[in-house]
């Protein structure tokens, strides 16, 4: 438990450093002292730091935290280390919702609402289909989700091919994942805190569930109820993240894996650690995305994927070697 607190303190410090990094970098050049002064509320940069950079960093943080926590829960639920927040088609549903509204020429809040409605629609659809009359096995849930996701993918292709030139750019940016248009979202923080608050006390049950449903049930875990709750929480987290920022890849897959390798698979530590590390990673990725070739901004989804792909391949390779 001491070790757990030390690791969480370390990750918390890393998160603060990432936020400082986000406040420091941008198209207007500030020195470290300028930035610290601005953070205290005076100096020429105060407005830029407090009204532009920090709100965006906070949104990046909450998005990354939502995704990493959702990924960690989804991996236990599906008993599959390759599961990520989007594997059951949440992002596909959200994309169809958002792109349809973009195609109709609507923007701003409408697109967010469309995305959220689409995500909930995907969640309900998979839940209903996988539940069916038969048993709700992880494999059945996973297959239903993957097949529905393929269906959403087809609809997205269809929407893109029907879209006029002028709408395409916005639609593509939405699909890649982008934080530049994201507004401060208290709702997302609320979802994050409620989900973490509900899942964390169940972490010991998740540890047991990782050893199989039969083993978990025989050790007194109410497996059906736990799985239902996991499904709802992981889906709500993913739907919220995709509503804020589009489908940003790899955070939800890589962060839980990286932490499993580094600090072990104990969910009592893993869940809060994922929340902190996922947020930190996305703050760093977003800061790089908007400052690498400033004033031009790169979509954060591309930066996380570029960081995520080699990292994941390395993890997979290192993991294989350990098993030999």
């Amino acid at each position: 438990m001491k070790r757990a607190l030390a690791i969480l303190a370390l990750l918390g410090a890393a998160a603060l450093l990432a936020l400082l990094f986000a406040a420091l970098c941008g198209s207007a050049n500030f020195s470290l002292t300028d930035t610290l002064q601005a953070l205290l509320g005076d100096g020429p940069g105060a407005a830029i730091v407090w009204q532009l950079r920090l709100p965006r960093a906070a949104t990046a943080f909450v998005t990354g935290a939502l995704l990493a926590l959702s990924g960690a829960l989804m991996q236990v639920l599906l008993r599959n280390p390759l599961a990520d927040p989007y594997v059951l088609g949440v992002s596909g549903g959200a994309a169809v919702g958002a792109l349809s509204l973009l195609l109709l020429g609507l923007g701003g809040l409408w697109v967010n609402l469309g995305a959220f409605a689409g995500a909930l629609c995907a969640v309900t659809l998979v839940f209903g289909l996988a539940h069916g009359r038969g048993a709700w096995t992880p494999l059945r849930l996973l297959l239903t989700g993957v097949v529905t996701a393929a269906g959403w993918g087809a609809l997205i292709t269809l929407l893109l091919s029907l879209a006029p030139e002028r709408a395409l750019r916005g639609m593509l940016f939405w699909l890649i994942g982008d934080l530049s248009a994201a507004a401060v979202s208290w709702g997302a923080w609320l979802v994050l805190l409620v989900a973490l608050g509900s899942a964390w006390p169940l972490a010991a049950q998740l540890n047991v569930l990782a050893h199989g449903e039969l083993a978990a049930a025989s050790l007194g875990v109410p497996v059906r109820r736990l799985r239902l709750l996991l499904y709802l929480l992981a889906s709500l987290l993913a739907a919220t993240a995709v509503t804020i920022a589009g489908s940003i890849g790899f955070v939800g897959l890589v962060v839980p894996h990286l932490l499993r390798l580094l600090i072990g698979g104990d969910h009592r530590l893993l869940l809060p650690a994922c929340t902190l590390a996922g947020g930190t990673l996305l703050v760093i990725a977003d800061t790089l995305a908007r400052s690498l070739i400033a004033p031009q901004q790169l979509p954060v989804g591309a930066v996380t994927a570029l960081l995520g792909v080699p990292l994941f391949l390395w993890l997979l390779h290192a993991g294989e070697r350990r098993h030999e």
């Binding site: 991996q75 236990v76 008993r79 599959n80 280390p81 540890n207 990782a210 050893h211 199989g212 449903e213 039969l214 083993a215 025989s218 499993r260 072990g264 698979g265 104990d266």
Partner: peptide, 16 residues
């Protein structure tokens, strides 16, 4: 219950 097969989704430690 000692189940017939052990289904481990993730590789934890022996002590855990």
């Amino acid at each position: 219950l000692l189940p017939q097969v052990h289904e481990d989704a993730f590789a934890g430690s022996v002590l855990e």
